[in-house]
Amino acid sequence: MNGLTRSLAMLGGLALLTTVSGCGGDGLGKRYPVSGTVSYNGEPVPHGNIFFVPDDQNTGRAASGAIEGGRYRLSTAGTNDGAFPGSYKIRIIALEVDNSRVEANMQGGAGRQDDVIAATQAAKKLIPAKYELETTSGLTATVEERSNGFDFDLTD
């Protein structure tokens, strides 16, 4: 194989790898975009995490996303890669954590475990605790084989 042929073969292989990895080539299957908003009593939830837990955990796979300024996008196995089609129960966690003690006592670039636990336990909940578990939140969604949008307006 001469240099030009070898270079063309490498470029073709790279293009194929890029195409496969960009289209769910991880062997998990096709996922669909899911995004939306989360508000509490009409105000955007400033930050937190949202989790889509499949109704059938034996055949489904969870997806999650960070909430920033009331907006989220879901990921299953990669950044913003969406979720699998199916029915989900939703859980949302939104806390205001004071990490000042963790930061003051950092060792080797990491916080001490007891400081992290204490800060998390003392955190202020930004939404009612019932939303922290999919079994008590009362929130559900069905992801379809298309782009999906779900907005959640949480109340007391």
Rank of each mutant, 00 (worst) to 15 (best):
G108A: 15
A123Y: 05
S147I: 14
P128D: 05
I92E: 00
R101K: 15
R71L: 15
H47C: 09
L126C: 04
L126Y: 06
P33D: 07
D55G: 02
S147C: 12
N80T: 09
K130P: 02
R101F: 00
G69V: 14
V143W: 01
T76Y: 03
I67Y: 01
G70L: 13
R112S: 15
A83K: 00
V34R: 01
G86Y: 00
A63L: 01
G86I: 04
Y72H: 08
D114K: 14
Y40G: 00
V38R: 04
L74F: 10
E43F: 07
N49I: 08
A63M: 08
R73I: 15
E96A: 13
T142E: 09
Y72M: 05
L74D: 00
K125T: 06
S100V: 12
D151C: 11
A118L: 10
H47R: 12
G70T: 14
V34M: 06
I92K: 03
G29Q: 01
A123V: 06
E103W: 05
N49V: 13
D98R: 10
Q113I: 13
V53S: 05
V97Y: 06
G69L: 12
R101T: 09
D81H: 11
A66G: 08
R73T: 14
A94L: 11
A119I: 11
F150D: 04
L154P: 02
G138M: 12
Y88M: 00
P46T: 14
I50S: 03
V38G: 07
A94M: 09
P44N: 15
S35R: 10
T59I: 02
P33G: 04
E43L: 12
F150W: 10
H47L: 10
R61Q: 07
E145P: 11
S137G: 13
F152A: 05
R73E: 13
N99D: 11
K124A: 02
R101W: 01
E145R: 14
N148I: 14
Q107Y: 13
A122Y: 01
F52P: 01
M106W: 05
S64E: 05
G69E: 15
S64W: 08
V97I: 15
F51S: 04
T136K: 11
F152E: 02
G36I: 00
K125V: 05
I50R: 06
N105V: 02
A94H: 10
T136F: 01
L95G: 07
S64G: 14
